[in-house]
Design a protein around this nucleic acid. Structure first.
Lengths: 225, 225
DNA sequence: CTCAAAATATGATAATTGTCATACATTTTT
DNA sequence: AAAAATGTATGACAATTATCATATTTTGAG
């Protein structure tokens, strides 16, 4: 059983407010998992009963729409927590969490987190701020979905992916999404997504190297979006 | 200066957790406003420095998109609070709040609310739950915006409006939105909205009586959405 | 390595939606 | 009451996007 004190999640998440004794307690009751690319951490409707700390790997939070398509609501990266909203609302998960890469996560039971939550004011304030940020992000995202066309949303998403998850040595996007997943992020049909990628490729905005994507002119892309 | 004890907002919002002494303090520092239909309570980007209690009347929360159109994110009705997220994040408002009807609201300064927030655990828990509900609502809304077409979103919105704000004696929707505002809710061009209303009218789903809308067959509408 | 399955790509076409023009109705101002 | 302004409605058309069909390429199992 490893310590929580040096963990990346502690440094970047609400957990940074926890003291030494709290970290020790947490280290004792936590469960560590490795999750393979494509596997779920939890599914929409599932009772999670705790929060997950993302130590390594990126996952998608998505929701199945009535039309059978999976809409990706958010991507979550190492250092972040999952399941905070469900814990506070005391509700089943509203979204599914599925690994986009091999992941390392820790699970901390609800009972434990709620203790920190009521006893440690700074911690609860941090959690709340995170949820507020999510709310702001969701509102903004919604406006984009409603008001921008697919090309604009694609351009915006590509820039977001590069800025958030960085580039490989060959300047391609480090985060690897299938065309279907990319379509699920921008909210369109897979074919439309592929077609627009081709178009951006031909007009020199991006370069397609196999399944990898390189942004050639971020400023031009920004003007598109 | 009226008391807060019997106020509708106290009964329905996070404020129900406040005790007698807290309500007295609040009554002393609050400011009451009447706001005319069409006037803003606050605008996107404005520093609000407190929360608003909606005593009477409905308002829209909207955000200006890059393309110049106003997207309505949420409607807020009597008994609810405004500005909780901004208060906790300590940020300017992300959305504008504009009255859809004549309104009565009270303003409570940030300093006062934050005192309740740190001293009264039940109150802060209530606020948090509200924000969590908003987050869930925003995520769900986003999925609808991304995955449903305009006709489905219109049908869904009409049902929402009837179920949330009720009907007049003639069975028309009580809440009165302009076509432009309705278009702003479903995220489409005003003309498209008008056209689809006409179409639903002709096919017997709804009846248009001047600017008023009557839902004729809610089940058929539900199947549409 | 080889074959089957899955993912990516593209064409053809239809459906949806946006835009601009214009007409008509309602509200507000003078 | 007339005129102007605003909101609603509709037609014509263009642009966008979805759907279905079908290659082509890549991946993974055996």
């Amino acid at each position: 059983m490893s310590k929580c004190e040096q963990c990346i999640v502690r440094q970047f998440s609400s957990l940074k407010a926890l003291g030494k004794d709290e970290l020790l307690r947490m280290a004792e009751c936590k469960t560590s998992y490795t999750i393979k690319k494509g596997e779920p951490i939890f599914e929409e409707g599932e009772v999670t009963n705790g929060i997950y700390c993302i130590k390594d790997g990126v996952c998608k939070l998505s929701k199945l729409s009535d039309n059978g398509k999976d809409q990706i609501v958010k991507l979550v990266k190492p250092g972040e927590l999952l399941g905070q909203r469900s814990m506070i609302s005391d509700e089943p998960a509203n979204l599914s969490a599925v690994a986009l890469e091999d992941m390392e996560v820790c699970f901390i039971p609800r009972t434990e987190v709620m203790q920190f939550f009521t006893q440690n004011n700074q911690f609860s304030m941090n959690v709340m701020r995170t949820i507020c940020d999510d709310l702001k992000g969701a509102d903004d995202h919604m406006v984009n979905m409603a008001q921008k066309n697919v090309r604009q949303r694609l351009a915006e998403t590509l820039i977001y992916l590069e800025e958030t998850f960085g580039k490989n040595e060959d300047d391609t996007l480090r985060i690897q999404l299938s065309r279907e997943e990319l379509a699920g992020m921008i909210g369109t049909a897979t074919e439309s997504c592929i077609r627009l990628l081709s178009e951006l490729n031909k007009s020199g905005y991006i370069e397609l190297i196999g399944k990898k994507i390189k942004l050639l002119d971020k400023n031009k892309l920004k003007r598109l979006s």
